[in-house]
Design a protein around this nucleic acid. Structure first.
Length: 565
RNA sequence: GCGCCUGUAGCUCAGUUGGAUAGAGCAACUGCCUUCUAAGCAGUGGGCCAGGGGUUCGAAUCCCUUCAGGCGCGCCA
C-alpha cells in the first residue's frame, strides 16, 4: 500500500529532474505514513517538506510540482491533495479497499506473512534461567516475549530457531546439590544449620523428600557403593554432592520444561553449557582468540582484551585457579551460534544483566563477527500487584511468585497477553485481580470477545439458513465504519513488519485492541444479519476477515482465539 | 564516582524511528440490554510530554545540561 505511493512519487521526482523542474541531486527516501487523522487521507507524504531546503523552494511550491506530476497517474485514487504546510495526502478509491478485503480472505491464515526476513537464519535465545529453582514471573515475561517474537519473526519470513541455554555447571550447581543434601540430612534429624548463601526455597526440601520417596536415594547409594549415604564419615560431601547436583538439576529442569510447555512455549533446542567443555568448544574458541591476539596473561589469570572494542575493562576468562569463568563458556557459546550458521542472534536477558552487553558485543567483534548481528533485548522486572497493592517478593528468602502460580491463577492467555502489552524495556505492573477479571478492564477478554462474537454471528447466520456465498457484492460496504475496518485490516501486514523490524511484539496487542474496538462498535451500531440477503452477505464477508486477522495476530502472541465465551 | 535504562492524564502505559489538533485502558462522572453474546456500546472531564537550553520548515521523539527513580560496575553466575 505504502509502496505503491512511494514508487509513484519516485517516478514523479525523476520526471521532474529530467525536465529540469527540480534538481533532485540524489533520490531521497520517500517518507510515507498512514496518518492518524482520517481527514488526511489514507496515505500521507511529507516529501515536499523534507525537500524544501535542498531545492531552495517553499514546500508548498514543491508539493504543487509533485501533484502536477501525480495527476496523470491518479487513476487508483479518489483524490490527491495538498494540505497544511505541504503534505500530500492520498485517498484511495473504495474499489481499492474492496480489493484489499478480497485479498485478505483469499490469503486466509497466511495474511500478514511476508518475505521481509528473506529466509535468514535467526536464533532467539530466551529464558535460559539457571536450573537452581522454579521459574518466576519475570521469566514468564521473557518466555512470552521470546516466544511471540519467534512467531513474529517466522511470520515475517525469517528462519527462526528457539533455544534455551542451560547453565548446568559451576558454583551455583554445586550449591544446589549441597542445598538438597543439607535438607536431606535435616530431614533425618541431623542438626546441621542451613548455610545462608544456599537456596532457601521450600522446593529444595521437596526435592530432598522426593528423593527418598522415589527411591532415587537408593540408586545413588548403589552407585556410590555406600551402605548409608547419611553416614557422613564414610561418605564425605565431596563424594556425595555431585550425585545430588545431578539429580536436583534434572528434577528442576523437568519442572522448568513442564512450566514452559504449559505456558505454550516450545524450544527447538536445549543447549547445555557443560557440553561446550565436553566438546572442546571453549578451548577452540579461546585458542582462536589467542591466535588473533586478544588474550593475555596477567596475575596468573587469562584475560580477554574487550577494551579494544569499547568495553570498560578487560575480562578474565580463566582464573588463576585454572578454572574458567562463566564468561569463557559464553564466548564459546556465541561463537558456536555463529558457527551453526545463524546470521542474526537475539538474546533475551533480564535487565539486571545490561552491564554485560558491551563485553558480549566486544567478544563478537573479537571473534570476527559483526556486532550488529547480535541484538540483546533486556526485559525489565515485573512487579506483581493485587488490586493495586504490591505482592511481596523476595528472591533472597526464596519466597517469590512462580510462573506456575501465576498461570494457575489467571490462565495462560491472560498472562501471555499482559506480558506482551508493554515494551520489553519498560517496567510492567501485573495485577493479578485485573488479569482474572472477565470484563473490558481486561484487554485479553476484550480482544478474544471480539473473535467469539464474530464466530457467534456465523453460528446465528447458519441457524437462519444464511451462508456466505461466493459472489459477494462488496460495494455494499459503504458505511464509514466498514471502510474504516477494512483500512485497519489493510494495515495489518505493516504492523507485522514494523514489529518484526523493531523486535517489538507489543505493537500487535495495541493493534488488536484498536481493531476489536472498531468491531464492537460496528456490531453495536449496525445489525450484521438483516432482512437484506445481499447486505448480510457483504457484512459477513467483512467480519469474517476481521475474525481472521484477529486469529492470525493472536496466534503470533500465543493467545487462543475462542469460538465462544 | 562512572555507565546503561526510565520520566507522557490521578494510576498503568502507547506514541508508526522527526510530521499536521498528544492517544488508549483503568479510575471518576452521564447515558444505553423486548435486539445477531452488555465479557459490549455512546459520551464528559482530565496534559507546561520531569525542568532548562539547542538543532530545523516542524521535537514527546535528535544533541547538551539539571533534577528524580531503577539497575549495573567481581578472578560471582
Amino acid at each position: 500500500m505504502k509502496h505503491s505511493v512511494t514508487t509513484l512519487i519516485k517516478e514523479v521526482l525523476e520526471e521532474a529532474r529530467a525536465e529540469g523542474i527540480l534538481r533532485v541531486e540524489s533520490l531521497p527516501s520517500i517518507p510515507v505514513d498512514v496518518p492518524k487523522e482520517k481527514s488526511h487521507g489514507d496515505i500521507s507524504s511529507s516529501i515536499a517538506l523534507s525537500l524544501a531546503s535542498k531545492e531552495k523552494l517553499p514546500p508548498l511550491e514543491i508539493a504543487r510540482i509533485i501533484l502536477n506530476g501525480l495527476v496523470k497517474r491518479s487513476e487508483g485514487f479518489e483524490k490527491i491533495e495538498i494540505a497544511g504546510p505541504g503534505f500530500i495526502n492520498f485517498t484511495f478509491r473504495k474499489e481499492h479497499w474492496y480489493a484489499v478485503l478480497r485479498d485478505i480472505l483469499g490469503k486466509g491464515d497466511s495474511y500478514g506473512r511476508s518475505d521481509l526476513g528473506k529466509g535468514i537464519k535467526i536464533q532467539v535465545e530466551f529464558v535460559s534461567a539457571n536450573p537452581t529453582g522454579p521459574l518466576h514471573i519475570g521469566h514468564g515475561r521473557g518466555a512470552a516475549l521470546g516466544d511471540a517474537l519467534s512467531n513474529l519473526l517466522a511470520t515475517a519470513g525469517y528462519d527462526v530457531q528457539r533455544e534455551y541455554y542451560i547453565n548446568d555447571i559451576g558454583t551455583q550447581m554445586e550449591i544446589l546439590g549441597r542445598s538438597v543434601w543439607v535438607r536431606l540430612l535435616q530431614l533425618h534429624n541431623y542438626d546441621i544449620p542451613f548455610p545462608e548463601n544456599h537456596y532457601q526455597g521450600e522446593y529444595i526440601k521437596d526435592i530432598a523428600k522426593e528423593m527418598v520417596t522415589n527411591k532415587r536415594l537408593d540408586e545413588i547409594i548403589k552407585n556410590l557403593r555406600a551402605k548409608d549415604i547419611l553416614d557422613l564419615k564414610k561418605n564425605p560431601e565431596e563424594k556425595v554432592i555431585p550425585c545430588f547436583t545431578e539429580y536436583s538439576k534434572e528434577y528442576i529442569l523437568n519442572s522448568i520444561r513442564d512450566d514452559l510447555e504449559r505456558f505454550g512455549v516450545r524450544y527447538d533446542r536445549w543447549f547445555s553449557e557443560n557440553s561446550l567443555y565436553e566438546d572442546g568448544k571453549v578451548d577452540s574458541a579461546l585458542s582462536g582468540l589467542e591466535k588473533s591476539g586478544f588474550l593475555y596473561e596477567r596475575d596468573s589469570a587469562l584475560w580477554i582484551e574487550t577494551t579494544r572494542f569499547g568495553d570498560d575493562k578487560d575480562r578474565v576468562v580463566r582464573r588463576k585457579t585454572e578454572r574458567y569463568t562463566y564468561f569463557a563458556s559464553d564466548i564459546a557459546y556465541h561463537d558456536d551460534k555463529f558457527k551453526r550458521g545463524f546470521e542474526r542472534i537475539i538474546d533475551i536477558w533480564g535487565a539486571d544483566h545490561h552491564g554485560y552487553v558491551p563485553r558480549m558485543k566486544a567478544v563478537i567483534q573479537a571473534l570476527g563477527y559483526n556486532p550488529e548481528s547480535l541484538n540483546v533485548l533486556l526485559v525489565q522486572l515485573v512487579s506483581l500487584v493485587r488490586e493495586g497493592k504490591p505482592v511481596a517478593m523476595s528472591t533472597r528468602a526464596g519466597e517469590f511468585v512462580t510462573l506456575k502460580e501465576v498461570i494457575d491463577e489467571v490462565g495462560v492467555d491472560a498472562a501471555r497477553y499482559i506480558f506482551l502489552t508493554r515494551r520489553h524495556d519498560s517496567h510492567l505492573e501485573f495485577d493479578l485481580e485485573l488479569a482474572k477479571r472477565q470484563s473490558s478492564e481486561n484487554p485479553v477478554y476484550y480482544v478474544q470477545y471480539a473473535h467469539a462474537r464474530i464466530a457467534s454471528l456465523f453460528r446465528e447466520a447458519s441457524e437462519r439458513g444464511v451462508s456466505l456465498s461466493e459472489s459477494v457484492d462488496t460495494s455494499l460496504l459503504n458505511l464509514p465504519e466498514e471502510l474504516d475496518l477494512i483500512r485497519d485490516l489493510g494495515n495489518y501486514p505493516e504492523i507485522i513488519e514494523g514489529s518484526a523490524v523493531t523486535l517489538e511484539p507489543h505493537r500487535i496487542t495495541y493493534y488488536l485492541h484498536g481493531l476489536a474496538s472498531k468491531l464492537h462498535s460496528y456490531y453495536y451500531k449496525y445489525r450484521i444479519i438483516t432482512d437484506n440477503p445481499e447486505q448480510t452477505h457483504a457484512r459477513l464477508f467483512l467480519i469474517k476477515a476481521v475474525g481472521m486477522v484477529i486469529r492470525n495476530a493472536l496466534k503470533i502472541l500465543g493467545v487462543s482465539a475462542p469460538e465462544r465465551m
